[in-house]
Amino acid sequence: MRKFLPKLAYLFATSAGAGLSPVWPGTAGAGVGVAVAALMIPASPWLIVLAYMALFAVGVWASSHVVSHTRTEDPQIVVIDETFGTAATLSMLPPDPVWWAAGFLAFRFFDVVKPWPIGVVHEKVRGGLGIMLDDAAAAVFAGASLLLLNDLIDRLP
Rank of each mutant, 00 (worst) to 15 (best):
V140A: 12
L152W: 12
L47E: 05
L90C: 06
V23G: 08
T14Q: 04
A18G: 04
I48C: 09
A88L: 15
Y10G: 08
P45T: 06
T89I: 03
G119L: 09
T86I: 07
A16E: 14
R126Y: 02
L156F: 15
T89K: 07
M92F: 13
S68G: 15
H69Q: 12
G17W: 03
L148D: 05
L129H: 02
P94I: 01
P97H: 14
P157R: 10
L156S: 14
G130I: 01
A136C: 09
I41Q: 05
L147E: 07
L11M: 14
D134Q: 02
T70V: 12
L147V: 09
D135S: 11
V140L: 12
G59M: 01
A35M: 08
V60E: 11
A138L: 04
A137Q: 00
L105E: 06
N150H: 12
P25R: 00
F12T: 13
A54S: 10
R108D: 05
V79N: 04
S21K: 08
P115K: 03
D81S: 13
D81E: 11
P157A: 09
A137C: 15
R2F: 14
F107I: 06
A138W: 01
P94H: 03
A28W: 05
A138D: 00
A54V: 15
A43M: 14
V58A: 14
S64W: 00
